[in-house]
């Protein structure tokens, strides 16, 4: 148990914080600890969790991506137009189109990163501007409302009437989210390719000497995020029942913050699917709880920001570092040096 705790500290801390918050909110509000609210939380978080597990794969491989959210907007548009062209389509064709479009946009990032040796933050800031600029230019900022019926009809997978007469529902995006989470988990922790991604993010030169195909790693990581972004884009369009070109603008940084809150490391080699999901849920639960407690919606983000800042500060700080007098440690200098070098 101790071993399990040591190897998954972030996850346990997050679970602890979530449980503590839930207990508090359960007492403070009538509604928080109800099935309906729990399902709502999942329905609301589904799209962000799909984004998050995709971004996790890129972070594990040592990259970063700023462009995935606007890429998802591009995918929404492309998919909506393509579906119109083929006369409506259905879930299968919709997912296929969205997925391939997402993979294509991700592959552009991977190509630029690998072929021209440009670091991922530079490439994705550029493609962020390119994707978003071109999207707004070609759509002139106009939204699409006449989506196919199958896409805009809410699909309720499970429902149950509550004692007070309200309905607790789980909708399609939650199921898709669960599949994406499971697939990502299987991929990164149960396949050799997934382990190679970890190794590549942890020590790229070491991975190269083992004959791991560096280019393939980039394409797989960014392709996976592209796929997830495509699926998330489609789910978001389904959830919102419309396609608005700038609806996802700015989402990338919120997702990034949540993923890192979940223990992924900028620089690669570290991060888990569970932590990533918990990171998103913690942010959602905070917002949901504040909402139920009647706090002004305008204060949500402020409090969420403060919580993330505190979390990052506390998780990065060892007490000796804050109070240098308590520093009877030895290898920390070497460790810091190694970090300095790896940058």
């Amino acid at each position: 148990m101790r071993k399990l705790f040591l190897s998954h500290t972030t996850e346990f801390v997050l679970i602890g914080v979530i449980v503590a918050m839930s207990v508090f909110l359960g007492f403070a509000t009538d509604r928080f600890l109800t099935l309906g609210n729990a399902f709502d939380l999942l329905n609301i978080s589904a799209v962000n969790i799909i984004f998050a597990v995709g971004l996790l794969v890129v972070l594990i491989a040592g990259g970063i991506d700023i462009s995935f959210a606007v890429a998802a907007s591009v995918v929404q548009y492309v998919t909506a137009l393509a579906l119109e062209r083929i006369g409506g389509g259905g879930w299968v064709s919709g997912l296929l189109i969205a997925g391939s479009a997402g993979i294509f946009l991700g592959a552009i990032n991977a190509f630029l990163i690998h072929r021209f040796r440009i670091i991922s933050i530079v490439v994705t800031i550029a493609t962020f501007n390119i994707y978003f600029g071109l999207l707004m230019f070609f759509t002139k900022g106009v939204s699409i409302y006449n989506l196919p019926d199958w896409l805009t009809t809410r699909v309720i997978v499970y429902e149950r009437e509550m004692a007070d007469g309200s309905w607790a529902e789980i909708t399609l995006p939650v199921v898709v989210m669960a599949i994406c989470v499971l697939a990502t988990w299987l991929f990164i922790s149960r396949t050799t390719t997934g382990r190679q991604l970890y190794a590549f993010g942890d020590n790229p030169e070491g991975a190269r000497r083992f004959g791991i195909n560096i280019g393939a790693m980039q394409f797989i990581a960014f392709g996976w995020l592209g796929l997830m972004a495509g699926i998330a884009g489609l789910m978001q369009a389904h959830y919102a029942q419309e396609v608005v070109p700038n609806a996802l603008y700015g989402r990338e940084l919120d997702v990034l913050a949540a993923v890192v809150l979940g223990g992924a490391r900028l620089g690669g080699g570290k991060g888990s699917v569970l932590g990533c999901v918990l990171g998103v849920l913690l942010v959602s639960i905070t917002q949901n709880g504040l909402n139920l407690m009647g706090v002004s919606p305008f204060a949500f983000k402020m409090i969420v920001g403060a919580i993330i800042l505190a979390a990052i500060t506390l998780s990065s700080a060892r007490i000796e570092k804050l109070v240098p007098i308590l520093a009877p440690r030895k290898p920390a200098d070497g460790e810091a040096a190694a970090r300095g070098e790896s940058r």
Binding site: G305, L309, A317
Partner: peptide, 11 residues
């Protein structure tokens, strides 16, 4: 704390 500047400034 040596926290990553991207994260600190993002939050």
């Amino acid at each position: 704390t040596r926290a990553h500047p991207i994260l600190v400034s993002l939050s």
